[in-house]
Each structure stands twice: as C-alpha cells, then as structure tokens.
Amino acid sequence: MIFSQIFETINTGLVVLDKEMCVRHWNRWMALHSQIDSSEIVGRNLFDFFPELNRPHFIRNCRSVLAFGHFCFFSQKLHKYLFPMPPAGSLAEEFDHMQQSCSMGPLRNESGEVESLYLSVQDVSEVVSYQKKLVRMNQTDPLTGVYNRNFMESQLAKEVVRCQRFGHELSLLMIDVDLFKNVNDNYGHQCGDYALKEITRRISAKIRQTDFLIRYGGDEFCCLLTETAPAQSLKVAELLRQQICDTPFLFKEHEFSSTISIGVAGFDENDVDVESLLRKADSALYQAKQSGRNTVVNTAS
C-alpha cells in the first residue's frame, strides 16, 4: 500500500519492463509527462510507443542488466533523454525535449533470478541549463560576447596538434586597437565599451563560422583562422582593417574614427608549439605598430 503510493507520487518516472520489452508498470509521472496513460501502454511492447529506443545501444544495455544483474547509467551528455517529452515550464525556450538522467536496474523474483528490469527517469533540464551557462561563462567575454582567453588557450592547443598530425593550415591574427586609450579619455569608458563591442561586431560579420574571435586582453583581440594559409589570412586581415577604419563610430553625440593594427602568423613546420606561433604573431603586430598603425604585417614579410 505504502510502496504503491510512493510509486505513483514520486517525482521520478518509473517503468518496469519484462524480458520481452513489454511494459509491466508505468507510473503516474510517466503518464503525465508522456501523455500516455498506463492503461494504454501496460501489456504492450515499449518499442510500439517509443520506436526510437529500438536501437542497439539501448537493447544491449537491457540485455546486460538482465544477464548480469548490474545497473546501467545512461550518460546524460550522450543521450540527452531516453523518452521524448516536452520540457516543463520556462525551460521550453531552451530545450526541445526534457533533459533526462536515466538508469536501469534488475528486478529479481523470489529465488533471486533477474526476471525484469526497471527504468528510472529524472528531469534534469535545469541542471543541464546551468551546466551550459557555466560553460558559456567560462569561454566567453562578458562585454563583447566573443570567446575569452581561457577558451583560446585550449582551442589553440587542439588546433596546433591537428596541424602537426594532419599537416593542416592554421593562421593567427593578433589585433590591437590603435590609441584606444584616447577613446576612453576623450569620450568616457562607456564609449570605450561601445567601441570594443562595435569592433567585435564588425570583425565577427566578416569571418567564417569555423574561425574564432577572441578577446585576448583589454583592447587586444585574436583571430584563429582554421584551414587558412598565410596568403589568404593576409587578405582577411586587410578586409578587417578596412571594416574598422572605413566607417566612423557613433556613440550618443560623439562621432569618431578608430583603426586597428594586425600581426599575421601562419603555422609552419618550424613551430613546435602554441607559444612559438603566438610569438610570431606578436612580433608582426609590433612591426605594424612601429610602421605607423592602421596596418597589416605578415611575419613572412
């Protein structure tokens, strides 16, 4: 009596399946979230209602639980959900389906043999939402919304390994806003923030989806161009330079112009690691600054 009440009222989906994948029990939580009443599904094959579960991975786990009597924990990151259900409340904006953490375990008869199995389903949409937010916060710059330095370090390390292994091309643009301090001093920091946002907006619009724009420091940015040889990346850099200097900036009543200097470096066989690529781009940027700003300099030149 008590146990059946718990079974019906617990805030977890509970399902009991027999060896033929026939549903034996289907609790109220499952009925409410799946819109399938227990009277409809009990006695029927689970796959008649959820054909997407009829795949090797799910079946292998069921069979191993029945054979070994162990537990199976469905990786949330891998599966997202087992039973497609609408997400509850405001989380519907973020997810197409309720995110679920599911596990499976054996049910034994009186002589201790595994006779059926149970599935438990928990709504973890909120947790997944927080995880996504944390990942985002850890990887992006709050002011401009582009990637941050933390992200760049791990991404650049991965790209360098890929280049070394497969001989792919990779270019790095080191970008610095010329005399940025003047913007802050003349028009205030709010205007400086606007300028940084506007610059990243203009750059983002001109790079490919597979490229990465990173805020490296205060007014320094970095652009990672994958599968791009230095000759092409030089053209991209020139395009970006024009995007900034050709159109004036407008903040409240202030109209002002801004320029950027760019150092370009391509990954080649002499580069042993991330640092050597960064050093090359840095020294090219230094040359660009020396030669009067609003300039693009390639390491090879």
């Binding site: 292998r60 786990n61 191993s64 639980v65 054979a67 070994f68 009597g69 162990h70 537990f71 199976c72 924990f73 990786s75 990151k77 891998l78 375990g105 034994r108 201790g112």
Partner: peptide, 28 residues
C-alpha cells in the same frame, strides 16, 4: 562517455558473476 559506458558493462559482468556464484546481491 563511451569509455564510461563500456566500463560499466565490463565491471558489471565480472562482479555480477562473482556475486551470483557467492549468492550475494550487489548494487553499484
């Protein structure tokens, strides 16, 4: 995640059989 799921099956199979032979029920 694949490594973890494969691990779960291998570990479960070995321990499950030991528990069965020694008439024990194990949870994980």
């Amino acid at each position: 995640e694949t490594l973890i799921e494969v691990g779960n099956i291998l570990i479960g199979a070995c321990i499950g059989k030991i528990a069965e032979l020694l008439a024990d029920v194990v949870t994980y």
